[in-house]
Design a protein around this nucleic acid. Sequence first.
DNA 1: TGATCTTGATGTAACGTTTCAGGCGTGATT
DNA 2: AATCACGCCTGAAACGTTACATCAAGATCA
Lengths: 353, 353
Amino acid sequence: MESLDDATGNGRSSRLTIREVADLAGVSTATVSRVINGRAEVSEKARKAVMRVVREHGYSTNRTARALSGGRTGLVGVTLPVVHHSYFSVILDGAGEALYDHDMRMVLCPTHHEHEREVTLLERLMHGTTDGAVLILPEESGEELSALHEHGYRFVIVDPYQPPDERVPTVSAAHTSGASEAVEHLLSLGHRRIAAVTGPRGWIATEERLRGYRAALATVGVMPDPRLEVESDFSDRGGLEATQALLELPDPPTAIFAFNDMLAIGAMQAARRRGIRIPEDLSVVGFDDTFEASIVTPTLTTVRQPLAEMGRMAVALLVRLLENQRIEALHVELATKLVVRESTAAVAVPVAG
Amino acid sequence: MESLDDATGNGRSSRLTIREVADLAGVSTATVSRVINGRAEVSEKARKAVMRVVREHGYSTNRTARALSGGRTGLVGVTLPVVHHSYFSVILDGAGEALYDHDMRMVLCPTHHEHEREVTLLERLMHGTTDGAVLILPEESGEELSALHEHGYRFVIVDPYQPPDERVPTVSAAHTSGASEAVEHLLSLGHRRIAAVTGPRGWIATEERLRGYRAALATVGVMPDPRLEVESDFSDRGGLEATQALLELPDPPTAIFAFNDMLAIGAMQAARRRGIRIPEDLSVVGFDDTFEASIVTPTLTTVRQPLAEMGRMAVALLVRLLENQRIEALHVELATKLVVRESTAAVAVPVAG
DNA sequence: TGATCTTGATGTAACGTTTCAGGCGTGATT
DNA sequence: AATCACGCCTGAAACGTTACATCAAGATCA
């Protein structure tokens, strides 16, 4: 406020440089730097002088220059397909929280599923702007990610959809046990014809949940019926279509395990269209426990993924990586937990006699 | 891949500098710079030589150095209270999209409603890291924002919750006309006792929607009933409580206009708890048209705000600001649109007689 | 007393760009 | 033939830090 140039309309609010502060305080730039960063030994006298100038003129260090000099930017890239899905935004929130605690900031890069775009973003992330990255559900091939790793770029993958390079740290949820738990819940309610509306085949999330689904069925001696396993795409529309197909089977399922909440919501819509009541006629279980699960009617029984915690964990790993510390657990799998709500109930007693 | 040092495990993947490229191509750094940035006149021979080296060795310019030299970082700060609400994340998506088109990236700063936090974030945004910012629903006082403006920092406010400095560009939706449209819809269905569950009093969004609500009522000669205007906080829990109170009135409303979708969803929950059917016994209208509005049962009639467009518009304004262009419209108000779904119906014929 | 350590402060070389002020041929103009 | 304009290019100075190598002076010790 004191200096005229601060208020010039031209935009470049010409702030003090470290050199000017040094001159004003009668010390060297090196001393100012050490005072600012609280490093090493500085005489009380010098410190006081510097602090006084800083306070009166309002100096604050230029992060760009610091980045260039120090080789670290304090910026972490975060890529994700889209922001406006609660699945992603909750992870993002967790990651942001953790980054803030480490005094770093995140550069957000929504890829909108355009692979090429993500590539150039990674290119850009690597070259000077960021110290590392958190890649949420990246659509790169394993080779691309390996190459990135070879180049010495530091990053952590959250919820990889293909098995990545062994050496790249990953964070994900316990797909298999979560799926098992969901199916066991349905089994305990007496259901035996339990359908699975899966995500795209080949994705880790899909395959592992499928494994958990089959394993749970196997424990009670139910043979998996291929017609009850319908592949879909993690969208509500996909869930709706898959469920319509299932309900047209001659021997339709009494319960549906949808591989995420969107699919489950689609399933509920399909049921409603056919006048099938949930949970009386059909039980539905989702996966994720996004916000939507708690507001649909009936509220959705689902497998909770600790999404925010996944974001935080990813940052924790990345920070260790950036500090060149050894990471003990390269692949972290966080526990899931079944949240029972209103969309599941005991199987209806067969009307037949 | 060629150079050994690229693959060193130490992390600093020592890439080529512009100087090395210059030496390899037998030209000066200035020439390389001009080739890279496609500026001015460069002989075809020199350009070819440089391009060859770049292609073979994989040079790409260090953004940090460029930022220091050029004074622009290509980074734009985006602050918002929280990421994981569809309201915010959709705006964010729009902004991200627009920034990408301008070859800029966004530094995301969730404030989590901690004012102090936002202040230090702004501090940090200002000092060297970003060229400007988009502030979504900032919790700063008008004075603070004015001061920021005085300092020459460039920013745009999306959906200010207090009237900001005249000179600061803002983007928001047409609260008043949107609210009027919602209420007119209810009026046209025969409703006369229409309650408003508002956001916090004093916020622009609240006051303007309230004005629209009252204006619409006035056009048909309905006097506003203070008992039908309940202040709340834009949360589903708040909507639930406010609606419970309304339903206990001796003369309860036949329709509720909730000032956002969360409140509306809370209202629906309150109705369900009392066994009141929507829309048969009670009509509900929301505001925003977030994703949730389309998946609740019944689906929610609501006023659509063009959230993504607001994000894009904010970036458009900011870009002009950064380029020192004159901005013709400093305060942009985007049109809203009523989306009629299942939660509203003609008022029930009074049973009394 | 002279040699050896501390302690606190300094000067300055990076860091990798961009850009400005020139410089050097070459061809056109007088 | 001398001058000028022009196209292309170069060298070097920013940009604002951090960090390394010194250095001065006072304390400690043989």
